[in-house]
Design a protein around this nucleic acid. Structure first.
Length: 471
DNA sequence: TCGTATT
């Protein structure tokens, strides 16, 4: 599940697909092309059973890719061979992608991540290194915008077993000249792990206040939206693009990871489920460096994919909103409904600390307070059990940020960050008071241990004034 | 040192 809702061409009558039809993933589609625009391009290879442009579930934003299923399996093979990496659609900087959708063959369990490569090593070098262990379907060295190797690569074998044997043989087996440690060969991250990794990177990148990304969110109506917006902005240096969307479930998992600081349990690769795509469907020869391979395996340009990485410019922001429906208003909400108001604080907070908002989500999604009181810093204090002590606040947090952070859990009747009189700097602790104990408890549950940058919040009930000191 | 996008 991933924030997209299919909009399909209406299957015409009598367009039954073959039992062994292949669903194709189409990438690098200009965002102004809809199903009807794409249809002619693909129809020349056979009758289309279904064509679905992927769109964001909430914003309707075109994601720049699609799923395509032909009635006939053969049509898919022909289309891939004819189009994949062969043609660049108007406005795109990279060629169209036509290949079996992930759903057709999860691939993850036979895809390896290779780290600690020498930055001089090319796709061909990596290919040679892994060739002895099986049929390589894909071999890509990761490169930066300048085309320089990042010292790592993806290698996809045709089977899990082959991939495993490559790990056994190569992991740690040697140290490449210039590498800081021995070769790393392991299964590539799953989608979930990738999501988590990205978010962690964002924590690192944006854990320090960055006003540049604190602007453009306000009219979202749910946590997930707010998070998506912030994450999207963060991961693109403030540009809004539809290219990443994080489902709430993944965000939740990320949160859990932040709290526990534990790596996710690796997903056990599903084995035994053999797919009829790729190798199965037209039995690619072991040597796929030949460009004439009549296979639906991702064609390998010049023997290897990904060689000519052009530096790709930022996608123009204005091309993003092809449906005339800007997903994120740059205006503040006027008189939004109660729910929206309830989340405004989270959104602002999210904009400041994108990844860190992930933690409380879904853990304890509090009832939005019915009334948001705007009083920010009344010295008042709630009843016993309603007052929280918060430590390890970010240096930048003031009373208002503190309130924003806790608004989602109920009505905040006061928030106070303690300042050093001499320096006027935050002492990084403060107090928040709710109007009822349940809100306070919800806030503790969700926010205690919440990671911001390198620190974790300590959130606990404030000691009653008359509490006896332990010493 | 984990890819631009995968219902």
């Amino acid at each position: 599940m991933n924030g997209s809702e299919p909009i399909s061409i209406h299957p015409e009558s009598g367009n039954m697909k073959d039992q062994d039809a292949i669903k194709l993933f189409i990438g690098q589609i200009p965002r102004n092309l809809e199903e009807k625009d794409l249809k002619p391009l693909f129809e020349q290879f056979g009758k289309i059973h279904e064509l679905t442009v992927l769109k964001d579930r909430y914003t309707g934003m075109h994601k720049g890719c699609a799923f395509l299923t032909y009635c006939a399996r053969e049509s898919a093979i022909k289309a891939q061979n004819a189009l994949h990496e062969q043609k660049t659609l108007p406005g795109m900087t990279r060629p169209i992608q036509v290949k079996p959708a992930d759903s057709e063959s999860r691939g993850e369990d036979r895809k390896l991540f290779v780290g600690m490569l020498n930055k001089q090593q090319t796709e061909e070098d990596v290919y040679r290194l892994f060739e002895p262990y099986g049929v390589i379907e894909e071999c890509t060295v990761l490169r930066g915008p300048d085309g320089n190797s990042k010292g790592c690569a993806f290698v996809k074998f045709s089977t899990h077993t082959e991939a495993q044997s490559a790990i056994s043989a190569l992991h740690g087996s040697q140290t490449m000249p210039g590498a800081s440690s021995s070769l790393v060969v392991k299964f590539a991250d799953t989608d979930k792990e990738r999501t988590i990794r990205r978010m962690q990177q964002m924590v690192g990148q944006f854990g320090i206040f960055n006003p540049a990304i604190a602007l453009p969110f306000s009219t979202y109506s749910s946590y997930a939206h707010a998070q998506q917006a912030a994450i999207m902005a963060a991961s693109h240096g403030g540009y809004l693009t539809p290219s990443v969307a994080f489902p709430a479930t993944q965000i939740h998992q990320m949160g859990a990871l932040n709290i526990n600081s534990l790596p996710p349990t690796p997903m056990t690769p599903v084995s035994g489920e053999f797919h009829h795509t790729l190798a199965g469907l037209s039995s690619p020869p072991a040597n796929i460096t030949t460009s004439a391979v009549p296979s639906i395996v991702t064609p390998i340009v010049n023997g290897f994919t990904g060689i000519p990485h052009q530096p790709n410019g930022h996608p123009a922001v204005e091309t993003v909103y092809t449906n005339g429906l800007p997903p994120y208003s740059t205006q503040s909400p006027t008189a939004a409904d109660t729910l929206q108001q309830a989340f405004t604080g989270v959104q602002q907070y999210t904009a400041i600390y994108p990844a860190t908002t992930l933690t409380p989500i879904g853990q304890t999604l509090p009832q939005p307070p019915q009334v948001i009181q705007q009083q920010q810093q009344r010295e008042g204090e709630g009843p016993e059990g309603c007052n929280l002590f918060i430590y390890h606040l970010p240096q930048e947090f003031g009373d208002n940020e503190l309130m924003q952070m806790f608004l989602p859990f109920g009505t905040v009747i006061s928030s106070k960050v303690f300042m050093d009189r001499a320096t006027n700097q935050s002492k990084c602790f403060g107090f928040v008071s709710f109007d009822n104990p349940a809100s306070a408890q919800a806030a503790i549950q969700a926010m205690n241990g919440f990671q911001i940058g390198m620190k974790r919040l300590k959130v606990q009930l404030k000691r009653p004034k008359d509490a006896s000191r332990p010493y």
